[in-house]
């Protein structure tokens, strides 16, 4: 794929990633954020964060299966937008929902498992966002960088659990996210164990990393 096309696709990707925020702003200005706007914004930003995070994790399997190596150039974009929405989600909780009631929030984080895992999911994204630039890969070395960025899986798993534990009765949505994430994880495990078999026990670790 030519660079020119990539640039166009990046523009498209930006627009797609901003739809959710645009929707919220449009609803804000047209007073259409439901009777409970804070809840609406919290749910919307949280779900978008999770969707984009899972989408970023789907890039490598899709690239491998399709042979479209250019897909890799969209992974950081998706990951950073996921972080952006997760940040909006957390900010909504801290500012709009709890209005800086730190004591109450600390209680929530320690006492409410769904909030604990939600915060953890966000915290795991921070080092990934910080080291998302090319210089960080160079500085850390590809091996270490890849290892660190496996945290994206942990963050997504915690994100799905966070959503699941929040729901009262209808688990359709978190279960859908969970199923997609499970497929991506299984794919990774299959690829990893195959390369392990091929390479033999001695060079297994190397091979696993090379398959990233």
């Amino acid at each position: 794929m030519k660079n020119k096309h990539i640039i166009w696709l990046k523009v498209v990707a930006w627009v797609v990633c901003l739809i959710s925020l645009g929707d919220l702003l449009y609803r804000y200005f047209t007073q259409n954020l439901s009777a409970n706007p804070i809840e609406f914004v919290t749910n919307e930003t949280g779900q978008t964060a999770l969707k984009l995070l899972i989408a970023s994790l789907a890039i490598t399997p899709m690239r491998k299966l399709s042979g479209w190596n250019w897909l890799i150039r969209f992974r950081r974009l998706l990951g950073l937008f996921a972080f952006f929405y997760a940040f909006l989600h957390l900010t909504t909780f801290v500012v709009l929902d709890k209005f800086f009631d730190w004591q109450e929030m600390l209680r929530d984080v320690t006492k409410r498992p769904f909030i604990t895992v939600g915060v953890l999911s966000f915290v795991l994204m921070v080092p990934l966002a910080v080291t998302s630039m090319a210089w960080a890969i160079r500085k850390m070395g590809g091996k270490n960088w890849n290892l660190l960025h496996r945290l994206a899986y942990a963050s997504a798993v915690l994100g799905v659990i966070h959503f699941w534990w929040k729901v009262k009765a209808d688990i359709t949505e978190p279960a859908t996210f969970g199923a997609i994430l499970a497929i991506l994880l299984i794919y990774r495990i299959v690829v990893w164990s195959r390369s392990r078999l091929k390479a033999g026990a001695g060079t297994a670790a190397k091979a696993a990393l090379a398959s990233e």
Binding site: D97, K98, F99
Partner: peptide, 19 residues
């Protein structure tokens, strides 16, 4: 008495900003 998953100490009155 909290719901096991969330606090029941406060509520948001629909139409209001602060809990």
């Amino acid at each position: 008495v909290d719901h096991p998953r969330w606090s029941q100490a406060t509520e948001r009155r629909i139409g209001e900003f602060r809990r």
